[in-house]
């Protein structure tokens, strides 16, 4: 049985390694990969899915 304080496990989308996320992680949250330091975004929690977070693009104007 899992509890609210159990860490959440997920696969690092870059290395394929299993990484541990905070128990209270939310969809849309950005975390740093403990393996590569890459910014990852939590895409879903059921199942837990991570993707590389979008990079900042440059645009002109207002």
């Amino acid at each position: 049985m899992t509890t609210d304080t159990d860490p959440v496990l997920a696969e690092d989308p870059i290395t394929g390694e299993e990484i541990e996320l905070p128990a209270d992680v939310e969809v849309g949250e950005i975390i740093d990969s403990p393996v590569t330091g890459t910014e990852l975004e939590v895409i879903s929690l059921d199942p837990v899915t991570l993707e590389e977070a979008p990079e900042l693009e440059e645009d002109w104007g207002e």
Partner: peptide, 14 residues
């Protein structure tokens, strides 16, 4: 994402 988009994060020169 819920509306089916791929998110773009922007910084603008203006």
């Amino acid at each position: 994402r819920g509306a089916g988009g791929d998110v773009r994060l922007l910084r603008k020169t203006g």
